[in-house]
Write a protein that binds this DNA or RNA. Structure first.
Lengths: 344, 344
DNA sequence: CGTCTGCATGTCATCGATGCCATGCAGGCT
DNA sequence: AGCCTGCATGGCATCGATGACATGCAGACG
C-alpha cells in the first residue's frame, strides 16, 4: 500500500502537499495538483484508515451490541440502524452478547476501546455502571432494555402497557385462567411484562395465581416443560400469554406436539410466519425497526449537538395485532361448537 | 484516558518501562513493576487500541458482510462465526450489503481499509475482481455464493444437488408439472438451483416448460404475482419448488390468501416456524451455522498458516428434511380422498 | 584491579496523516 | 527602491505504543 510519502517522492513534493491535494486544500497550484493526482491514481493511493483513526482519536463506526443477532427481533433493529447509518456514511459493527451475563462487560469494553462514534446496546446484565467511564467520550443509547445504574438515553417499548393490553384482550375473550410463559424473570422486559399481566388481571378483578407463571420457555425443551407444568394442574389455564417472541416460537411447536389445540395464545413480539400459522398468532407488535431508527437518530443527534439536552428515557407504544390464536377456543357459551378461525 | 506517558511520569519511569510492565517483560525489577502496576490501577490505564492497531497495521476484527442481516439464513451464519471468533478473542463486525449491487464494492472496500484480520463475504454482485488488491494482505472467504473473477476460498452449499433432490422428491410424489419460484436468475445460487431443477426433470424424462419458471417472489407482492401467473395457465402446476427461504416465506402466505391448498411445496432453505405450519414445509436444509463455522475456521487457519495450501472451492452437502407440504395433494391414484398429514 | 557479563532502564525512531508555523517568492503599492 | 501582502510549499511535531539499540550499574572472575 502506497503512503503519502511514496506519492510525495514520486511527485517531487512534500507529503504535506499530497495531504493538501487529497483534502482539497485550495492553496495548491493547479499544475502541482494535477501532477499529484496523476501519481495518486497511478500508484492507487488509499489513505491509511488506521492512521487517520489514530490521529483523530475516533473511528467512524457505530457499534451495535444485542443479545443475539440471530433473533429476528434484534436483527430487525440492527438492520434499521444500518440503513440510516449508511446514509451518513457511517459503518456499523454488530455483535452478539450471548447468554453469559459475565461476557457483557468485556465485549462492550473491547468495542468501546475502538473509540467508536457511538454505541447502541440491548444489554443482558442488570448492572451497566461499568459504562460510566465511557459516557463522557462516546454517545451510548440503550434499546429494548433500559440501563441500570447508568444515565444514558434509552428507547424501550411499552412492556407494561403491551402486556396489559394482551392480557386484557384474552380476558375479554372470556378467559379467566391465563398462563404466563416467559424466559427469565431477571430480564427487565420480562419483569415489566409480568407486571403488566398482573395489573390486567387485577384490573379485571381476577386473582393472581403464581402457579400459572412459568419461565425458561425460550427454548424447545423449556417450552415443553413449562407447558407440561401448566397443563398438569387441577385447573389448567384456558389461554396463554407468551412474554416474548422466542418463547412464542418455542411454545407453538410445544403446543402442537402436546396436541393442546384448545388453548388461546397471545404473544409479546411479532415473529416470522406468525400470520401464516394455524391459527395465526395474535401478537403485540414491538416494531423493532422503529426502535432501531430512534436509537441511531439519537446517536447522530448527540454527535452533531453534544451539549443539547434530550429526554433520556423514551417509551415507544406497541400495537396489538389481532389474528386468530386469541379466538381459541371460543368463549364458554358455545365452546367446542365452532372451528378455528384463520385470519389471512 | 490516561496514556503510557502519564503512567510513566507518575511512576518516575520511562514510557518504555510501563510498556514492559504491561506486556509482562521479565526484565523489570519487582519493585518497579509493583509501583507501575499500582499507578496503572490508580489512573485506570487502558492501552489505546487505535495506537496499537496503527502500529501493528492490523485490527483484531473479522468482518462479515452478508446481503441482509435480518435474513435468518445469514444471521445464523453470522452467529456461528461470532461464536468461534469469540473463543479466539477476535471481534466480529457484521454488515449488510443490501439490495443495491453498486454498493457492494464501496462497503467492502471501506471495511477492508480497516486492515481487518479477515473478511467473510456472501456477495450480491457478480464481479468481485476489485477485491484482488486485498487478497495478498487479508484472508478473504466467501460463503453461500462463490466469488467471480477472484481466486479466494469459498464454502457454498450444494445448490445443484439440493435442487435436484428436492425436485426429484416432488416427482416421486407423482408430480409432473412443478413450478419454480425464485428470486432473481442473476444470483448464482438461484441459477444453480434452477439448473438442478432442470436436470431433475430431465433425468425423470419430463419436459422443461419455461412458463413454469417465475422470479421476483422474494417479497409479498412478487410472490402473489408469481403464483397468479403460474395458476392462470391452462395446465397449472400441481407442485412448487421454492428456490430460497425468503421466497418460501413470501409464497406460503400467498398460497393461503389464494386458497391454493392443493399445491405441494418443497423449499430450498429452512426457515423459522417451517415445521409448525400447516402443512409443515418440506425443505432442503442448508445448515447455515455449519457454513459459518467452516468460513471462520478457514480464516483462522489462513492467519495461523499463511503459506499453507487449501482447497479453494468447497461444496457442503445439504439435507432434505421431509415434513408434510410435499404430500399435498396425494398422488393421482387417490387424490382428494385423504386429508393433509401434519408432521410434528 | 580491571574487565566482562547480565540485567534494569532509558532514548530514539517509527507507523501515516495532518495541524501549526516557517519560508520564500512574486506582484503591487507608496 | 523598499516594503508589504498573498499564496505555494515545506519542515517539524504530534497522536500512543513499542522495537532496536544504548547506557549504566553491580557483581563475578582471572
Amino acid at each position: 500500500m502506497a503512503t503519502m510519502h511514496d506519492v510525495a517522492a514520486l511527485a517531487n513534493v512534500s507529503a504535506k502537499t499530497v495531504s493538501r491535494v487529497f483534502n482539497n486544500d485550495p492553496h495548491v497550484a493547479p499544475a502541482t495538483r494535477e501532477r499529484v493526482l496523476k501519481i495518486m491514481a497511478e500508484v492507487n493511493y488509499v489513505p491509511n484508515t488506521l492512521a487517520q483513526n489514530f490521529r483523530t482519536g475516533r473511528t467512524p463506526v457505530i457499534g451495535v451490541a444485542v443479545p443475539d443477532i440471530a433473533d429476528p427481533f434484534f436483527s430487525a433493529i440492527a438492520r434499521a440502524i444500518e440503513e440510516i447509518a449508511a446514509e451518513q456514511s457511517m459503518a456499523v459493527s454488530v455483535t452478539s452478547l450471548g447468554q453469559d451475563i459475565a461476557r457483557e462487560q468485556p465485549v462492550l469494553d473491547a468495542l468501546l476501546k475502538f473509540q467508536l462514534s457511538g454505541l447502541i446496546v440491548a444489554p443482558i446484565s442488570s448492572d451497566q455502571s461499568y459504562l460510566n467511564r465511557w459516557t463522557a467520550s462516546t454517545p451510548i443509547v440503550f434499546v429494548d432494555r433500559a440501563p441500570t445504574k447508568l444515565a444514558v438515553d434509552s428507547f424501550v417499548e411499552d412492556d407494561l402497557g403491551g402486556a396489559h393490553a394482551a392480557t386484557t384482550h384474552l380476558i375479554r375473550h372470556g378467559h379467566r385462567r391465563i398462563g404466563f410463559v416467559g424466559d427469565s424473570p431477571n430480564i427487565p422486559t420480562s419483569h415489566n411484562r409480568l407486571e403488566g399481566y398482573r395489573r390486567a388481571l387485577s384490573d379485571a378483578g381476577i386473582a393472581f395465581h403464581p402457579e400459572l407463571i412459568t419461565f425458561g420457555a425460550s427454548r424447545g425443551e423449556g417450552a415443553n416443560a413449562a407447558l407440561r407444568r401448566l397443563m398438569a394442574q387441577p385447573a389448567p389455564p384456558t389461554a396463554l400469554f407468551s412474554s416474548d417472541a422466542r418463547c412464542s416460537m418455542s411454545l407453538i411447536p410445544a403446543l402442537q406436539t402436546a396436541h393442546e389445540t384448545n388453548l388461546a395464545l397471545v404473544g409479546f413480539g411479532d415473529f416470522p410466519m406468525a400470520s401464516a400459522l394455524t391459527p395465526a398468532t395474535t401478537v403485540v407488535d414491538q416494531d423493532p425497526a422503529n426502535l432501531g431508527r430512534h436509537a441511531i437518530n439519537r446517536i447522530l443527534e448527540r454527535i452533531a449537538h453534544p451539549h443539547k439536552r434530550y429526554r433520556r428515557r423514551n417509551i415507544l407504544p406497541v400495537e396489538l395485532v389481532e389474528r386468530a390464536s386469541c379466538f381459541v377456543p371460543w368463549p364458554a357459551t358455545d365452546a367446542g361448537l365452532r372451528t378455528v378461525s384463520v385470519a389471512g
